[in-house]
Simulated assay, not measured.
Amino acid sequence: MDLTTILGILGAMASISIGDLMEGGNPVHVVHITSLIIIIPTTLLASMVSTDPEYIKGAWKNVGMNFKKSPVNLEERIKEIIELALMARRDGLLSLEKRVAELDNEFLKQGLSMAVDGNEIDTISETLEAVIEETEHYYHGCAHYWILAGETSPVMGLVGAVLGLILALQKLDNPAEMAEGIAGAFTATVTGIFGAYVLIGPMGNKMKAKSHHIVKEQKVMLEGIIGIVHGDNPRTLEAKLLNFLSPAEEKHSQFN
């Protein structure tokens, strides 16, 4: 579970609620069912107009990745690649055939299968680079749907507020009802802004950030496959692959 997403949302809600309570307000009054109905579905539907159907489906399919820990473990993947490099250097590329069939990653399996089948490095590289490019486009397209929805949400909040004010002004003969209507109208603005910067928009940015881990892993695997086909020294190859780790990650060599 990715606690940064959960704590971020809950923390933002808590801080707003505490501030409202300190000023004598009641956070429950901000939750206005009509505003939610006007803003959230309209925002999500309007964003579909500018988004390719493939990415809309992917945006909903992959939204769960924002709440889960990244499945990418570069250290373990590098360790696996080096083990394969050691086997290939010792027994030849054909010795990897059985091991390749047991791999859990389709990208790595595809690249090494091409290597075992005797394809040239340029062919392998071009094929896998195309996969990387499409993977990046796919996740960025999915993320863009949520980002676009986040940008649309405040505008829909304004629309909801204007609709509420129109109805409120029709009650000039009843000041109490008019004041209540105006208060309800402004909850739409709050809902739109909150949805944009705490709920909907951040989903897209977090999805884009997490997709970078997936793409980086593929780049690491591509470099590893090329190194294996070249017959690079496993120690040298490992040093090269460890450079893909971020400064926040410790680099541990399995040769030490």
Rank of each mutant, 00 (worst) to 15 (best):
D91T: 07
G201Y: 05
E75V: 11
I40M: 12
A143S: 15
G157K: 06
T135Q: 11
M207E: 09
Y145Q: 12
I6D: 03
F67T: 07
S35D: 12
I81F: 06
F244A: 04
F186R: 08
F255V: 05
I182W: 03
K208F: 01
I16F: 13
G224M: 12
K171S: 15
V190F: 14
G58D: 06
H252M: 08
H137K: 15
S70R: 07
I78T: 09
G64V: 07
S70L: 07
L7W: 04
I193D: 07
I39P: 05
Q218P: 03
G150M: 10
T135L: 11
I40E: 00
Y55I: 00
A161G: 04
E83H: 03
E223V: 08
V159K: 02
I214N: 10
M22A: 14
N205E: 08
V155H: 08
L103H: 10
A185L: 04
A101P: 01
Q170R: 12
N119V: 07
H230R: 14
I56L: 13
V72N: 07
S246C: 00
I226E: 13
I38T: 11
G141L: 02
N62A: 08
G181P: 04
A101Y: 01
H144Q: 15
A176Y: 01
G150I: 09
K208C: 01
P41F: 10
I132L: 13
G111E: 01
I78E: 12
K69I: 05
Y55T: 09
G8P: 04
T236S: 14
P175I: 08
R89Y: 00
P27C: 12
G204M: 10
V198L: 09
G227K: 01
N66R: 03
I121D: 07
M156E: 03
Y55H: 15
N243R: 10
N105T: 01
L3E: 06
P41H: 05
A115Y: 03
F255R: 00
D52W: 02
P202N: 12
F107N: 11
K219C: 11
M221I: 15
P202Y: 08
E249D: 12
E126N: 09
M221P: 02
K210S: 03
L163M: 15
K79M: 10
R77N: 15
H213W: 06
N233H: 13
E106G: 08
H213P: 00
A239L: 11
E249A: 13
H137S: 12
I225E: 00
A46Y: 05
G204K: 02
T236Y: 01
G92D: 05
I18Y: 03
V100P: 09
I16H: 02
T123K: 08
L241I: 02
K61G: 05
A101D: 14
A161L: 10
A85W: 00
A161T: 15
I39Y: 00
Y138G: 04
G141K: 08
L7V: 15
I16V: 15
T187C: 13
W146Q: 09
R77P: 00
G24T: 09
